[in-house]
Design a protein around this nucleic acid. Structure first.
Lengths: 107, 107
DNA sequence: TTACTTATTGGCAAATTAGCCAACAAAGAA
DNA sequence: TTCTTTGTTGGCTAATTTGCCAATAAGTAA
């Protein structure tokens, strides 16, 4: 079994992914590094909001960044997050399946 | 790319895992179904607190349950959550590695 | 029925997270 | 230097999450 302390550390990483904007940032970065302004195009949020979301991902160790002149370039730090979501998808698919068996057919 | 709506759905599942108690519940249930009182032994929280955490996992579709007499029995609904954490572990290991390169050796 | 055991739900206060605007910092251009 | 562009940080409110206690089911036993 894992200790509570270990669970806390893991949950910090998972918590960092537990937001739609941050999930999409990871999805976008999977296909290659992007600048901040490129990432901005995907979202309808204030730049400060996106910047803080990216910061959360950086602190968690999921995303890395470097400066290139005026621009900030971001990338996925740990490649396996790419595969991370297959299980999430499986959970969602299963949930839909479970729900279907309970949907009452139209009379 | 995934849509924002899709990201919201995924983040609901991930959010359900983003708590140390809920992570440990999943870890414990990986090794087989457990009753509520068996799960209680692992945590120093009120029974209402644990019950609500389990409820979050059920709503997310990660955990299933059934009644057996007076007892509630819980199990992992989607087996792949077992493998789910290998990437989280990778992120943590990488983060530790990154930090080590920055630790100043004792003088 | 009454009593007991097991778990869930309601309600509330404390803690955390999210998102906006404004101010600031850093780097290049004029 | 001053202006501009790019992104981060501070500060604040709103929304969400957490966890406790108390009250309530839902079974079982006497």
């Amino acid at each position: 079994m894992i200790t509570y302390k270990e669970a806390e550390i893991r949950s910090e990483v998972i918590k960092a992914m537990a937001h739609p904007v941050r999930l999409m940032v990871i999805e976008v970065l999977k296909d290659g590094n992007k600048s901040f302004s490129e990432l901005m195009e995907y979202f309808d949020v204030d730049k400060s909001t996106l910047s803080k979301h990216i910061s959360v991902l950086k602190v968690a160790g999921i995303v890395s960044s470097h400066k290139d002149g005026l621009e900030s370039i971001f990338g996925v730090q740990v490649p396996c997050v790419t595969e991370f979501f297959s299980c999430v998808t499986a959970v969602i698919k299963d949930k839909i399946k479970q729900q279907q068996c309970c949907i009452r057919p139209a009379e």
